[in-house]
Lab assay of single mutants.
Amino acid sequence: NDEAKKEAEKLWKNNKSEDEIKERLERAGISPDEAEQWLQELR
Rank of each mutant, 00 (worst) to 15 (best):
E18G: 04
D19M: 09
E23A: 11
I21Q: 02
A4E: 05
I30Y: 08
A35Q: 07
N15L: 06
K6S: 08
E41C: 07
S17N: 09
S31D: 09
R27I: 14
E34N: 03
I21E: 01
D19P: 04
E7Y: 14
E41N: 09
S31R: 04
R24V: 15
S31P: 12
N15T: 03
G29Y: 00
D2N: 11
K22L: 12
I21T: 03
R43P: 02
I21Y: 03
D33C: 11
I30D: 02
E23W: 06
K16G: 12
E3C: 14
L39Y: 03
W38S: 01
G29L: 01
W12D: 01
P32L: 09
S31K: 07
E7Q: 07
K5P: 01
S17V: 02
Q40W: 13
P32Y: 05
A35S: 05
E9I: 12
I30Q: 01
A28E: 11
N14G: 07
E23G: 05
K13M: 12
E9A: 13
E36Y: 06
L42Y: 04
K13E: 07
L25D: 04
E23R: 09
L42I: 09
L42M: 09
L11N: 03
R43C: 12
E20C: 15
E20I: 07
E9R: 11
E34D: 08
E20N: 02
W38K: 01
E7W: 14
E36F: 05
N14Y: 07
Q40S: 11
E7M: 15
Q40R: 11
L39Q: 01
A28N: 07
L25Q: 00
E34A: 08
L25V: 01
E23H: 07
A8I: 10
I30K: 01
D33G: 09
D2E: 13
E20R: 02
E23F: 06
K6E: 06
D33Q: 13
A4S: 04
P32D: 06
K22G: 01
G29R: 00
K5T: 04
Q40P: 01
L25T: 02
Q40L: 10
R27D: 12
A8D: 01
Q37T: 08
E20S: 03
S31V: 02
E34Q: 13
L11S: 04
L25A: 03
Q37F: 07
E36H: 05
A35Y: 10
I30L: 12
E3Q: 10
I30R: 00
L25C: 00
S31C: 12
G29P: 03
K16M: 15
G29E: 04
E7A: 06
I21M: 01
E9V: 11
S17A: 05
Q37L: 13
N1Q: 13
E3H: 11
W38Q: 01
K10E: 14
G29W: 00
K13V: 07
K13N: 11
E26C: 14
Q40G: 05
R27A: 15
K5I: 05
R27W: 12
K6G: 04
E20V: 05
L42G: 01
Q37P: 01
I21D: 01
P32N: 08
I30P: 00
D2S: 11
R24A: 15
A35K: 00
D2F: 12
K13H: 11
E36C: 10
E36Q: 09
E3N: 09
E34W: 04
E23P: 00
Q40H: 11
A8K: 01
I21R: 00
K22W: 07
E41W: 13
K5L: 08
D2V: 12
K16L: 14
W12N: 02
E41F: 09
E18A: 10
R27G: 10
A4C: 15
K16W: 14
S17L: 05
E20A: 04
L42S: 01
K10D: 11
D2G: 10
L39A: 01
D19I: 09
K10N: 11
E9F: 13
L42P: 00
Q37N: 09
S31W: 03
N1R: 15
K5H: 03
A35N: 00
N1D: 09
I21G: 00
E41I: 09
A35H: 02
L11E: 04
A28W: 15
A8H: 02
A4M: 14
L25H: 00
E26D: 08
I21N: 01
K5E: 03
L11D: 08
L42E: 03
I30S: 01
G29C: 06
R24S: 14
E3R: 07
W38N: 00
E3S: 09
R27C: 11
L39S: 01
L25M: 06
K16D: 04
E18S: 08
L25I: 02
Q40Y: 07
D19Q: 13
N1Y: 15
K16V: 15
E18C: 06
K16A: 15
D2H: 13
D33E: 14
S17K: 05
E9H: 12
A8N: 02
I30M: 13
D2R: 10
E26A: 12
E26N: 06
A35F: 06
I21S: 00
W12R: 00
E3K: 10
K13R: 11
Q37Y: 06
E3T: 10
D19A: 14
I21L: 04
I30N: 01
E34R: 08
D33R: 07
E18K: 06
R27E: 14
N1I: 14
L11I: 03
A28S: 06
W12M: 03
R24Q: 14
L39E: 01
E36P: 01
E3D: 12
N1S: 12
E20L: 07
L11W: 12
K16N: 08
N14H: 08
K16Q: 07
W12E: 03
D2T: 11
D2C: 15
A28Y: 15
E3V: 09
R27Q: 15
G29Q: 00
E34H: 04
P32H: 06
E26W: 09
W38P: 00
E3P: 05
E23N: 06
N1C: 14
L11F: 05
D19N: 08
E34L: 15
Q37S: 10
W12I: 04
E20P: 00
E23K: 09
R43Q: 08
K10Q: 12
